[in-house]
Each structure stands twice: as C-alpha cells, then as structure tokens.
Simulated assay, not measured.
Amino acid sequence: PHSISLTLDGEHVAGSPFTCNSYDVEKVQVTGLGNSKVGKPVTFTVDASQAGEGTLELVVTTAKASVRAEVTARSRGLYDVTFTPQEPIAHFVNVTFNEEDVKGSPFKCEVRDLDAKELKRLKRTESKMVAVQGEGLQEVCVGQVARFEIDCKGMDGDVDVKVTAPDDTPLPSRLTRLRNGMVYRAEYRPVMIGLHRIEV
C-alpha cells in the first residue's frame, strides 16, 4: 500500500496519512485454457498473485446461458478453475480484476462432440459415479412400498429403473425427480417373498 500525507500549514488534515492500494490488471495471467469436448472437464489457472490487492471475478458463458464453474484456491491469488461443457458450442471465459477486463478476456474455448468410442467410455465412467442407496435395496415387506434414492452426482442423463420379481415377472416402479433434478426416488411394491432383482 501507498501512504499519502496531506497537511495544511504543517498540520495533518483529518484522516491523514491516507492509505492507498495500487494494482496492475496487466499482471493477471490466465493459462492452460484450451479447446475441449462435450462432457470433459476443462481446467485452467488464473494467477493474480502479482497484481496487487483486488477482487477477481470470473464467469463462463455460451451464446445460450452461463455455465457453472468451480474455483479452487491453490494459494493467495492463485486459482484453479474447472467447468464441464455440455454442448458442442463455443464457451467464453470472462475474467475481470477490480471490474477491469483481464488482457485477452473473454477467452474462447471451442467445444466439439465426442466420437462414438469416447461417448461410450464417458457413459461407462459416469455410470460408476452414480450412487444408489436406501432400504428398498435391502429388506422390504411384501405389500408395502419400498423406496431407494439415485444420486446422479450432478450428471445429466436418462435414468431408468427395472424391478424383477423372483418368478422373473417385471414389477411396476415409479421414478420421481427430487432436489436439483439430479436426485431421484424410486418406488416399487413387492408382491411375493423372495429375491428381487433391481437394475438402474
């Protein structure tokens, strides 16, 4: 910070000396941002450690809407930013420091579709991340409604539940979206004693 003294006839005026923080938006660096594919996380670094005191703001957008981004502080003024594109369109990263645009902002990230093999691999990985839990997966009473929840961990996609009775006949099930649309409640009613098969 800079110290500014203001005197009148040799006497400090009220509040003197004043403190002023200086900053340099040119010292903010954005690195590691490149093109990506749908569903693949994009991570880059914003380094404002040499820019002085200030407020760093960052927004990721497309031509349609804003995109959720997660910011992790590595140290004072040094941040890792991650977002996951869901559409094969250009994404823009707007970075400001003390309400001034950082040099190069908005930064452009071109996003393309996955090919068939990549899409299959991604779906397999996402399926392993989904969490399923509840009493309806353990012991339930015949004739009573059994319930369990499916947490998609923020991933978007079609969720389907199939319940099969011990005699291999399908049982009706109901799927309800809960909070944020990424958690579901599944319900079914067993009609006979025995081991039921549940597929999610």
Results as ranks from 00 to 15, higher is better:
Pro106Gln: 01
Val60Phe: 03
Ala73Tyr: 09
Val93Asn: 02
Ser5Trp: 01
Val102His: 04
Ile198Thr: 05
Lys103Ile: 10
Ser22Ala: 13
Val102Asn: 00
Gly10Leu: 00
Gln29Ala: 14
Pro106Phe: 01
Phe148Glu: 05
Thr164Arg: 06
Val132Arg: 14
Lys153Gln: 15
Gly77Asn: 07
Val159Cys: 02
Gly104Pro: 06
Phe148Cys: 01
Asp101Arg: 10
Phe18Arg: 00
Thr31Val: 10
Gln133Ala: 15
Val38Met: 04
Lys37Ser: 09
Arg68Ser: 12
Val81Ile: 15
Thr43His: 02
Ala14Asp: 08
Thr62Tyr: 04
Gly39Ser: 06
Gly77Cys: 01
Thr7Lys: 10
Ala65Glu: 13
Thr164Glu: 14
Lys123Tyr: 10
Ser16Glu: 07
Gln133Ser: 15
Val30Pro: 00
Leu175Gly: 04
Ala116Ile: 02
Ile89Pro: 01
Phe18Asp: 00
Ser66Met: 07
Cys109Val: 05
Cys141Lys: 15
Gly34Met: 02
Glu139Gln: 14
Leu8Phe: 00
His196Asp: 07
Gly54Asn: 00
Lys120Ser: 14
Glu187Pro: 00
Leu114Arg: 11
Lys120Leu: 11
Lys162Arg: 13
Asn35Gln: 11
Thr82Ser: 09
Asn35Met: 00
Asp101Asn: 10
Thr176Ala: 13
Asp160Thr: 15
Glu87Met: 06
Val30Ser: 04
Val38His: 01
Arg174Phe: 04
Thr96Phe: 00
Val46His: 02
Asp115Tyr: 08
Tyr184His: 11
Pro17Tyr: 02
Asp151Thr: 01
Leu171Asp: 10
Gly54Trp: 02
Gln138Met: 14
Met182Asn: 11
Arg197Ile: 09
Ile198His: 04
Asp80Trp: 04
Asp80Val: 05
Arg147Lys: 15
Lys103Val: 13
Val163Arg: 04
Asn21Met: 12
Ile193His: 11
Val200Trp: 06
Val25Tyr: 11
Ala131Tyr: 09
Glu139Met: 12
Ala116Leu: 08
Lys40Trp: 11
Glu118Met: 03
Asn94Cys: 07
Gly104His: 08
Arg68Leu: 12
Lys123Leu: 09
Glu126Met: 11
Leu78Lys: 13
Val42His: 04
Gly10Ile: 00
Asn35Cys: 02
Val161Lys: 08
Lys103Asp: 14
Val140Gly: 03
Val132Ser: 08
Thr43Ile: 06
Gln144Pro: 01
Val38Arg: 05
Lys153Glu: 11
Glu139Arg: 13
Val132Leu: 13
Tyr188Leu: 04
Asp24Leu: 10
Val13Glu: 00
Cys141His: 13
Val67Phe: 04
Met129Cys: 01
Met155Thr: 08
Asp24Ile: 03
Gly54Ile: 07
Leu78Gln: 11
Val93His: 03
Thr176Lys: 15
Lys162Ile: 13
Ala14Leu: 07
Ser36Glu: 08
Gly10Thr: 00
Pro1Ala: 14
Lys37Arg: 12
Leu114Thr: 01
Gly194Tyr: 07
Val25Met: 06
Lys37Ile: 06
Ala73Met: 10
Met129Glu: 13
Thr125Gly: 11
Gly134Asn: 12
Arg112Trp: 03
Gly136Met: 08
Glu53Ala: 11
Thr169His: 14
Lys103Leu: 13
Arg185Glu: 15
Arg147Pro: 06
Gly143Leu: 03
His196Cys: 07
Thr7Gly: 01
Lys64Glu: 12
Glu11Met: 00
Ser5Val: 04
Arg68Val: 10
Gly181Asn: 02
Leu137Glu: 10
His91Met: 02
